[in-house]
Amino acid sequence: MEETLRIRRADSRDTNTIAGFNASMAQETENKALDKDATLKGAAYLFENPGYGFYLIAECNGETAGSLMVTYEWSDWRNKFYWWVQSVYIKPEFRRQGIFRAMYENLTAQAKEAGNVCGLRLYVEKENKRAQATYAELGMTPSHYLMYETDF
């Protein structure tokens, strides 16, 4: 049977799936259990406030295989936006099958078509060498910036 892969913009019907993916990612990558109500509200917030970004969904043979979130950063240096790729999650049984690559290529095409995007950015855990290799295979390069943060 030939597999069909479809990449689409998520909508509010995907809220539960995205929240579940976010919880699974936090558990896998940081051994952190997220509050279910907070993840649901967090996913729903983007649908209620599309000026902050959007989600992409990958479907393989009609089953949701993965998702990613895009948020916007305005660059006054370039007078355009960076699209930040965040919350990337591919279900384990769909990994290493080119699904993220398809999502990335779809996103790249959308960014170029938008006309007001100067680039894509993402951050990755220092120890996540597999993800780093994937991003490098797609032509992404490490930034010369370091990330600092303050949590509240």
Rank of each mutant, 00 (worst) to 15 (best):
P50R: 05
Y89S: 10
E63A: 13
S143A: 14
I18Q: 14
M147L: 10
V70G: 09
D37K: 13
R95I: 05
A133F: 04
D151P: 09
I18W: 13
F54E: 14
N49L: 12
S24W: 00
N128S: 03
I18V: 12
Y89K: 12
Y72W: 14
E127L: 02
L68S: 08
G98H: 07
E30S: 10
L46I: 15
E127V: 06
L56M: 06
N16L: 14
N106C: 13
L120S: 04
G139E: 07
L122I: 03
A111L: 11
R101I: 01
P92F: 11
E59F: 13
A23N: 08
T39K: 10
V88D: 03
N22V: 02
A38E: 10
A23K: 09
E93V: 14
E63R: 14
M25D: 04
I99P: 02
F152W: 13
S12H: 13
A38W: 05
E93W: 07
D11V: 06
A114Y: 02
A26S: 14
E73K: 03
E3C: 12
A114C: 09
T17S: 07
V88T: 04
E137G: 11
E28L: 09
K126S: 11
T134Q: 11
L107N: 00
I90R: 03
M25E: 09
I7V: 14
I99E: 03
G51H: 13
T141Y: 00
G119S: 03
E113K: 09
G115V: 05
A10M: 06
E59K: 06
T39C: 09
Q110P: 01
A58E: 02
M140R: 01
Y45K: 12
D37R: 10
N106Q: 13
K32I: 04
R8L: 05
R121K: 09
P50L: 11
E149Y: 13
Q27T: 09
S87N: 12
F100E: 08
A109C: 08
R6I: 14
A133K: 02
Y55F: 15
R6W: 04
A10S: 07
N31M: 00
Q27H: 07
F100D: 12
E125H: 09
A26C: 07
Y148N: 08
F81C: 07
E127I: 05
G115E: 06
F47Q: 06
Y135H: 01
D37E: 14
M69C: 12
